[in-house]
Design a protein around this nucleic acid. Structure first.
Lengths: 339, 339
DNA sequence: CTGTTAGCGCATTCAT
DNA sequence: ATGAATGCGCTAACAG
């Protein structure tokens, strides 16, 4: 493998000149440039990223701390990842996927290994020790999600309160008087997982404003759990006629429980999902949804980090996105209109 | 940030001794070891991965070349990625996600930058120039998928012929006399995308063996396309009573087209999917599926590469997995049994 | 405009 | 069992 020294020798210039031709950090005569470029082409030279990183103290690599699979990865999370990786590449950055450290210590170690210039964090809790850690060390990072206190941190998040309120308003307008929020797992709510907590807050406020009855329950992320929870709900609240469901797995269980109870969706029971458009398209029957802008969040998360690393911003940028509600119908006529 | 020199000074030993304590590549007295470890703890030292990689010519990082989002990423692909990343971490490797280079040149450059020790390739075609390229350069890599000729290359792949044949057998046994394969897009078939080609081969052979009529069509990966293709199918082949569907998006379109035509799934029309268990669980109504072992393939893909990098194998390992058929029912009773 | 040189932080060879 | 010294391939300060 050719090195910079090989190029310098072949082009008959100093090693540093090759470096400067490549970086453009000082002017080089056109003729010299051409000689260098020719040598590079002839020797099929490609700069060594490690040596570059070591000398410049910049790796041009960003990392994303990725929640472990075993916790049940949602399609949404993967949309963040895929889009963030793509954006990184567009900006000339490599993308390191780091499965979630069990302890904050491991996260700290990652930051000390010099593999990446900065990190994207996701699955943020209202009070998150990882955030405190990185903040204290002044390590560059952005969040997909947000804490309670976000002073000095760039993030992109969905306005869950608004999203759920939108769903409630839609159902209230359809005439529903008693609706349920099938929230994420009880565990997530307890540890202060932002989306869970804020969805619940938005739900309670909105049902109050619309003067309708609201029941909030949690479900594990599985069809089994969604099925069981729905059965219990139907028994306890026979007047329920609609649900807001922010998770795909429990949603499937709910639909089957309703069907088994003789209720057809959406004729006898309305459901509004909170899913990415990609996911919502895959649900049968077609359901109205508040569209979680997952790829947009992945994109912005990566862009904010890169901007921060390149000193393009002097203070944190905090983006709180609002999701739109898309009314979907089960009939194939839908396809004709949506084309 | 503490460096090895800091540790050496604090422990009162040579820099190289610290290195050897860490690597264990030569014996060090117990007492010296302890002094070094204490210094490491006191200074919160963490080795710099770049310097290590530069000096040792091993990064302990593997890369996965990831098909671009714009081509429509399937849940399956993300399962490969997530599981491979997890396995890498378990083995102490970092995991670089590289969005698919448009050209082979870019792939070549990646291998020359020294960022990774080896690559995992996916979305393999029967004749794949990327594979030829890496093979020619003797660059370490493994495939999730396989080519026509796989001499000297480790891979893990699903036996698609067998998978589709299993589905055909199941449908034949149920009494179906005319069935359709709703294959991946025509484009993928044309470029020789392995799963498409092999699924088709398995389908044609199996329908022949069972003496039933088989119709093979392609669909773009969208509900719209699945809907349109199904409408055309029903018009041209009124005796069709079952389908084999290896993609989730077209599947949704097919189900809706059937419903709009007054056909209920699975009562009036049988569908066997070829999806990961994770995906299949999310389909409503519940459908029998040949379970694509996506995470297993991600795991093996990563493990084969790491074994190869660590010299644990002397010749290629080629794993062709067989998928099992899971019979699913729409009733909630299913949950009770599957628990 | 260009060349020389000193590190970046570590692994490893050569000494002892 | 340990130290000293060299170099991995590059960036950037220094020198002209």
């Amino acid at each position: 493998m050719a090195t910079m020294a090989d190029i310098a020798e072949r082009a008959g210039v100093a090693l540093s000149t090759v470096s400067y031709v490549l970086s453009g950090k000082r002017s080089v005569s056109e003729e010299t440039k051409q000689r260098v470029f020719r040598a590079i082409a002839e020797l099929d030279y490609q700069p060594n990223a490690l040596a570059r990183g070591l000398a410049s103290r910049r790796t041009r690599t960003i990392g994303l701390v990725f929640p472990s699979l075993t916790k049940g990865h949602s399609e949404m999370r993967m949309e963040f990842v895929a889009r963030a990786a793509e954006v990184a590449a567009e900006h000339g950055y490599a993308f390191l996927l780091w499965t979630a450290p069990d302890s904050d210590l491991e996260l700290l170690q990652l930051t000390q290994q010099g593999r990446v210039d900065g990190l994207i964090l996701m699955e943020i809790r209202l009070h998150d020790s990882r955030v405190d850690l990185l903040k204290e060390r002044k390590y560059p990072f952005t969040m997909i999600g947000r804490c309670q206190d976000n002073d000095g941190i760039s993030f992109v998040d969905l306005d869950f309160e608004h999203a759920v309120a939108t769903a409630v308003a839609h159902l209230a307008e359809l005439g529903h008087r008693q609706i349920v929020l099938l929230n994420h797992s009880a565990e997530l709510l307890e540890v202060g997982y932002g989306p869970s907590v804020r969805s619940l807050q938005g739900f309670e406020r909105a049902v109050g404003q619309h003067g309708i009855a609201g029941v909030a329950v949690t479900s594990e992320p599985s069809a089994q759990s969604g099925y069981a929870v729905t059965q219990a709900l139907l028994a306890q609240h026979p007047d329920l006629s609609a649900a807001i469901v922010p998770q795909e797995t429990a949603l499937v269980g709910m639909i089957r429980a309703l069907n088994d109870a003789g209720l057809r969706v959406p004729d006898d029971f309305s459901i509004v999902t909170l899913l990415s458009a990609r996911q919502a398209e895959l649900v049968t029957p077609a359901l109205t949804s508040v569209d979680f802008p997952a790829d947009e969040m992945g994109r912005i998360g990566a862009e904010l980090l890169i901007q921060q690393l390149e000193g393009q911003i002097d203070r944190p940028i905090q983006r709180l996105l609002r999701a739109n509600l898309t009314v979907r119908h089960s009939s194939g006529a839908y396809y004709a209109r949506s084309r």
